[in-house]
Write a protein that binds this DNA or RNA. Structure first.
Lengths: 139, 139
DNA sequence: GGTATATATTCGCAGTCACGAATATATTAT
DNA sequence: ATAATATATTCGTGACTGCGAATATATACC
């Protein structure tokens, strides 16, 4: 068993469920980002510019579909791909849409300017955590 | 330009739009069927077991996305794929879902038992047209 | 011309979904 | 224990969507 989207369904239903789940720009971005390397929620928050709750909701959808998995590391919870093959599906769609094959990975490297997560700022003062930097960035 | 789903959008929006369009079992079936060979609406009606209006609605979505095109031949209107590459996207998803690569083409060859379209029944009496056979099949 | 056939379109509705807001939970630091 | 931090969950709402029903359009046949 490779993918566990929706077992015990017709093939077209299984496939369409996958498409319905990744048929949302934010979720494609999330998959591209954490496909590049595991990321915490605050990293996604900084990169995508969305509210934390919204991202958590999308992550919940991806979790229930067994596309991503969560793992706590210190204060943060890092998400990673369960099945990297999902990127091949997205990449195939990117090619179909006339994009260069590298356009997908470019999604993962966009506006990481003021990202506060400990992965982006390894030796940073722990006082300056995600929320601190996020609020100071918007001020 | 290969695919014209939604120009002038971010890459992830374009890709997600494609996924949203094919994120529906019926539409995947339609694409698989007419990807095999062009089919008229009544053929889809017989194979899918859906109402005519519903199929026309799905076809309208696929038409607006420039995935299928319509062409009249006699009484019937035959649909065919504009960009067969969309099947590669679906196939990639099928592989991801753990199906065999041939599972996609199997969608096109399912319950064609009582299909009334002139393509399925070449030398049939023109009196026995789509609606006639459809109603007689359900009686 | 009129009639039947094949398909398209419109309308109304129920279901789903994404988002914002608010709140809850879990972990860390003091 | 208390407070702060990082993330999750719930709730309400507006928007979208798929379907059935009804109707409209276009072509073919007489």
């Amino acid at each position: 068993m490779t993918a566990n989207i929706y077992p015990a369904s017709s093939p077209e239903t299984q496939i369409s469920h996958l498409f319905a789940i990744i048929g949302q720009p934010v979720r494609i971005q999330i998959l591209a980002i954490i496909g590049n390397e595991p990321a915490c929620v605050c990293h996604l928050e900084a990169v995508l510019g969305l509210r934390q709750a919204s991202i958590s909701q999308h992550l919940m959808v991806l979790r229930k579909a067994n596309l991503v998995t969560a793992q706590r590391e210190g204060r943060n919870i890092f998400y990673r791909l369960v099945q990297p093959g999902v990127l091949a599906v997205i990449e195939q769609a990117a090619v179909f849409a006339g994009m260069t094959p590298g356009a997908l990975s470019a999604l993962a490297l966009r506006p990481v300017a003021g990202c506060p997560c400990p992965q982006c700022n390894p030796g940073i003062d722990p006082e300056l955590s995600c929320n601190t930097l996020s609020s100071s960035k918007s001020s």
